[in-house]
Design a protein around this nucleic acid. Sequence first.
DNA 1: TAGGCCATCTGGTCCT
DNA 2: AGGACCAGATGGCCTA
Length: 352
Amino acid sequence: MLTLPIDEPAMMCEPRFGANYPRETLPEDLARDIGRRDSMHEDMSNSDMREDDLLEDEDLSLGEEDEDEREEDEPDANGIAKTRGPRRKKPSKGRHERVKVRRQEANARERSRMHGLNAALESLRKVVPCYSKTQKLSKIETLRLAKNYIWALSETLSAGKRPDLLAFVQTLCKGLSQPTTNLVAGCLQLNARNFLTDHNGDVMFSARPPPYDSMYPYPGSEASAPPGHSSSGGGTADSAKPFRHYNYGGAAYDAGYYENASPEGGSPHLDGPLSPPMNFNGIFSLKHHDDASEYSKSSPYGMRYCGAPGRAALGQNSMYRGGGPEARFPYDLHLRGQPYQPQAEMHGAFHN
DNA sequence: TAGGCCATCTGGTCCT
DNA sequence: AGGACCAGATGGCCTA
């Protein structure tokens, strides 16, 4: 046989994770993954090795010395030595090995890069609403939700007044898939059917969230509506329609609070020197709570945003405390010279 | 079984 | 030359 063993350590492992990617310095999961990949690499490399076989056939016909710099003219189809034009260098075995090693190193770098990207994405998952280890948001949904979250929080600051809960959640769910929308709604103990879409795909309000209404009824609301049964609140035919995700193009916002453009329309206008409110929403403080298990334990949805320890979900600072529809958000803004703790408040509202 | 999601490989491009 | 980044291709896994 002309081929080398494809699982030859010197061929497959040593160059691949040599100077640049020592296996022992890799993250644990990456090293494990690489180990798995190495074990899988036999069949994965088969195509390469078939190609390698052909190349090595040529190489063997050329001999062992490096032929990269050979100057002899190769005869053309008529047997006449070509003296002009670009000469096609046959890859020598040494050159081919170097190419292969570089390719393997590039693959390892690319894997590492993608793992870093995924790690960053995972950290992003932890600071947007509805983090769950068991039901992870997809990459695209994580990015969309993060964008909506930033936008909604920015709106909260720029508006300078209490936002409407449903409008906030609707903003969060803009453009998200239905499962993700349901997830967000579930995190906040909302029923997704409460923000319905009309036949144009625009989100419409049909009812207040029954769980909150039943616990903290608004004046005149149907306090007897059973929690979790949204259709009983609205009672309309629309309320029975399956929830569809937000339509980006024609978003129907709560006119009172989200009167600006959609998240797709760019950052909301801010009067301050910085466009987005920086370091506002407790995201950074969340870094101290990387262990989401403690949150998920107490959550009926297995998520950390429902009933975090040490915080009364529906207590004094709850967004659902009494009052009218304007009093449904958990915090007051103290914009001028007053102590202002929006981080903790927003954290409590959406990271409980 | 189709579709969604994901990890990985791979070749190209750009930059240092 | 080599690394970072990107996008296309591919195959595996999972779910409706």
